[in-house]
Design a protein around this nucleic acid. Structure first.
Lengths: 221, 221
DNA sequence: AATTACCTTACGGTTTTCCTTAATCGGAAA
DNA sequence: TTTCCGATTAAGGAAAACCGTAAGGTAATT
């Protein structure tokens, strides 16, 4: 089993149960930090001292305060750490249950597990630690479907750009200009119209307003 | 100081620090529940046995699961309890920091304190318990402005209805019909236009799409 | 009762979005 | 190369949103 574990969570103290779970698994060397930057530094230092952490359990959302941070979110932290130290196991432990976020973290950033904080969170966390220890991916049951290709809506980065600008109040013509200015293709007004139209159909939205409301709820933007 | 306290939070265990804080204040009779309905029943039973709780500390968002609940959120719980037992002190302890939510809870539902979960959350919680014990209202500093009238944007229920329907994809004409059907006044297309226009100016939104994106971020809808 | 202020409603003109049809371009297959 | 197909671009009209103005109602004040 893992012996050296780092926990990153901005709330003031370890959830009592998390400590109990780790204890129950015989893990005693546990460090906790409240900032993503601290987590990054701890991992880096431990590696340099040849006493690396075996597992990182991190939250996603960190409140911002006076301390300016290089890594503002758990997502940025995971991305960076997995680039530098691919062998470090990472479990994301968050209340966030929006599918797109989970998909990005697992598929793009290569996190090893995604556990939803909730009533069953501790049980799932325990299962996740054991799974990850045996080189398996663990996803909370309630969001496991997020990874199945059947749910794949094939939303591209391009669509996200469109939706982002749309939600910022740009007219379709302004979006077209924005794309030309940033040399993103396709950029014609017609293409913007066409793509947004496709997205409307895909999300069963009545109009652009409805569309933005839906994708905001889904956490896509 | 309070002696009998109920904590309502759907995560599996009391945050270690919350226990420590209560202990530090000499509060030993602490009960914890994971469902809003359980919280309601506990309070009701305790009252009937003439051994009422003095203080309730509750979260706002509860994950839904197989158990169907009468009170789906902390907000509904607070509303109901304050109607039946106005003398019961209630502290809301949540990550939620959107101003409108805070305002509603304090001003409409008469919660006694609102503490943001965060790095300073435990210190603030301690201060809140002491404040509330002395019949004062406590609000976390970072959101105290929410209650100041200067920030008052005078958003009425009527505006919320408009924004809700707008975000559901109804055209302004459809919203007008919706209002007539529900006998909400004013209901003319012109009035809908005018009110939405006022909201756009108020929120510095470029258009209706932008407006919906903004109020969604603010948590108004 | 009259004045005032405010809100609701109505209407016209302009802009933007929505939707369809058609032309054009570029790559893959025949 | 030619053909075909999908994607991009273009253009037009209908619908809706946007914006100012004006008329009608209502309630509070004087």
């Amino acid at each position: 089993m893992f012996s050296k574990v780092l926990i990153s969570d901005d709330l003031g103290s370890i959830n009592q149960g998390v400590g109990t779970v780790l204890e129950g698994l015989g893990i005693t060397d546990v460090t906790q930090v409240q900032y993503c930057d601290d987590a990054y530094l701890k991992v880096k230092n431990a590696y340099q001292k040849a006493e690396p952490y075996h597992l990182l359990i991190t939250d996603l959302s960190f409140k911002t305060d006076h301390r300016s941070q290089t890594y503002a979110s758990g997502e940025a932290l995971v991305k960076q750490l997995k680039q530098e130290y691919p062998e470090l196991k990472i479990i994301v432990y968050s209340v966030e249950d929006r599918l797109q976020r989970v998909r990005t973290l697992i598929q793009t950033h290569k996190a090893n597990a995604y556990v939803c904080k909730g009533r069953q969170g501790l049980n799932e966390l325990k299962a996740a630690i054991q799974s990850v220890y045996h080189d398996n991916i663990y996803i909370s049951p309630q969001i496991e479907q997020a990874l199945r290709p059947s749910t794949d809506l094939e939303i591209r980065d391009y669509d996200i750009v469109l939706l982002k600008q749309l939600s910022k109040g740009l007219s379709q013509e302004e979006i077209s200009k924005f794309l030309k200015h940033h040399e993103i293709s396709p950029s014609s007004l017609s293409s913007v119209e066409k793509h947004l139209n496709k997205l409307r159909v895909q999300f069963k939205a009545k109009n652009a307003i409805h569309l933005v409301a839906i994708v905001k709820d889904l956490g896509l933007i």
